[in-house]
Nucleic acid binder design. Structure first.
Lengths: 326, 326
DNA sequence: CTGAAGCATAAGCTCAGCTGATGCTCGATG
DNA sequence: CATCGAGCATCAGCTGAGCTTATGCTTCAG
């Protein structure tokens, strides 16, 4: 009988490529992972790993085995979900991973509605960068988490995880003054800030990559002066005249005054990610529902009306001036 | 993460109904099974077992979980098979369970062809009563085994196992002298030996049940004088005039002379049983192929020609007189 | 009423599997 | 070419999961 714990290590190895990374992702020492994979290989009777330089790679047999491991883990996840569903009440701990902007914009409301609807549920929230979400979910450290998909930054398909869309936000360019130009021309509009001082997120984050790629798409490389992840701070900096920045819609719900927001023809999609098979778990489903409700209550992003072009908007505008560039 | 070993215990419990039986089937002490199931229940967070009198029964949640367990175990079995298949050579140990008659009739030939075709394969044969095959397969004590299906004795569907037919044998009535009556009338023909002394297998075996049911079907209860499982011995006893017996076709390949064999309108089907998902395992497939080849070499039972009615027969008749009663 | 069958629990032991230390190899870098 | 860091394997040692044995309780059959 193949050991499922060991198969899980193998699956993670197929995703990360080094034993050390597997160990870090699943909270073991590299030594333990190495030993367990050796045992798995011995039991399998076939080489599963191939030492290549100082790394290690899966053999074809290993890759096939990973496919089976995926299926088994997914089925076990389903089983756990069905067990929890057979409980009359949605209860127990559910660990939620969320990025700072969403935490600020959605979390208070979502937690309140969760507490009202499922008093026995114990949501535990951790802020986490969307880039780290996948291993944390697979390792069982989180049960639900939010990830991003930016235009220009396709998120790779993550095996073992299932996602469904939560919301689709317009991206804005935040500045103090509007240039006296026609902003109607989509991507090229960004070019009007080609010589501005830019404020981006720190390198390595999706937001940072998104900003750079978008500017490159408009034909220039931004002069990055400040690197700040927290959008509220970023907006304050912009309002104080220290630069311009690209920010997502969720970040501008409490924008400071004296800020010009130009709607860009770029979008950021936020997805709810869970382990494959766990979507039917009632606690997970409840969290997803609460997050959706919170999004609806903020106002369905696509339904907003732009101060510049006059389209429908279901919520009060931010106090800042808003102009549509799309 | 649900523990697959514990799920296996639960699955076995759903089949046997008592913890003690599970323990015996899977070679644990009842105490260990009880502890593991308690742990599983605690992890599940939902009652899976229901104490009813001095037995224990699965709750609906438990039954659902068993379905998932089946799926997981089957997939793991498939994975193991594919691993073995990715080896260039069919090798390693394969444990075979076989009943005495088949052992005598098929095994030498099957083992010879296996040794020739797959020298690295190490078949290990154990004689086992078909009634005990299911738990032994599920427990991993056997990899392939032969089971029976008699007319009148439907074998229950065994979860976790997959079967495919190996051969279909005609049943014979063995006696020293033929009655001066028309044997053409199927089941009723048996009635001509209603007052004979009968030799059956020991109670509890499928053969025993089969004989009794067949006689009851013909309207009488046989007078059982001797109870002997070994068909060769049974035939010697019959030839020596100590009674009559119902024997399957495989048993009459080396029947003693001076024996009358009356073909009965009854059949015994022999099936190859494996764990679900293990059918593609190359060692298992090799054993199955060898058994089939052995059956073919003996002569395809349905293709034989009856000494009484003149139908086709591809192998030499047993030396005994053979008459068709169907 | 008695005994057997079946389950649960406690106590103790054993080994699977983890950590931490060490050494080796590969590849990048100056 | 020498050096250094990253990555993997192996060893020794320890800890706890999980097994067995022993015991007691409950239920049911005779």
């Amino acid at each position: 009988m193949l050991d499922v714990r060991r198969l899980r290590l193998l699956r993670e190895l197929s995703l990360r490529g080094t034993i050390a990374a597997v160990a870090e992702a699943l909270a073991y020492t590299p030594s333990a992972v190495s030993q367990q994979l050796s045992t798995l290989e011995r039991e399998a009777g076939v080489p599963l790993l191939e030492r290549t330089g100082r790394r290690v790679r899966l053999t074809p047999a290993g890759q096939k085995l990973v496919a089976h491991a995926e299926a088994v883990l997914e089925r076990l996840e389903q089983a756990a979900g069905e067990l929890a569903a057979s409980c009359h009440e949605v209860a127990g701990r559910v660990r939620i991973g969320i990025f700072p902007t969403a935490a600020r914009a959605l979390l208070p409301d979502a937690l309140t509605s969760l507490a009202g609807r499922h008093p026995a549920l114990e949501p535990m929230v951790s802020e986490i960068d969307p880039a780290d979400v996948a291993p944390a979910l697979r390792a069982g450290e989180l049960d639900v988490a939010l990830v991003h998909e930016y235009d220009f930054v396709p998120s790779p398909v993550e095996p073992g995880l299932a996602t469904e869309p939560l919301c689709d936000e317009t991206m804005y360019l935040a500045a103090t003054t509007l240039p006296h130009v026609d902003l109607a021309d989509g991507a090229a509009a960004l070019g009007h800030w080609r010589d501005a001082a830019w404020i981006t997120a720190t390198p390595g984050t999706l937001c940072h990559t998104m900003t750079l790629r978008a500017c490159h798409g408009a034909g220039f490389t931004p002069h990055v002066r400040h690197q700040v992840d927290e959008f509220a701070t970023v907006l304050e900096l912009v309002a104080a005249g220290h630069g311009v920045a690209m920010v997502p819609q969720l970040a501008v719900t409490d924008a400071p005054p004296n800020l010009s927001l130009v709607r860009l023809p770029l979008h950021r999609r936020t997805l709810i990610a869970v382990r494959s098979g766990a979507g039917a778990h009632p606690a997970v489903a409840a969290v997803a529902a609460a997050l959706r409700a919170a999004v609806r209550r903020i106002g369905d992003p696509p339904a907003r009306r732009c101060g510049g072009c006059g389209r429908a908007d279901t919520r009060p505008h931010p106090r800042a001036t808003e102009v549509c560039a799309s």
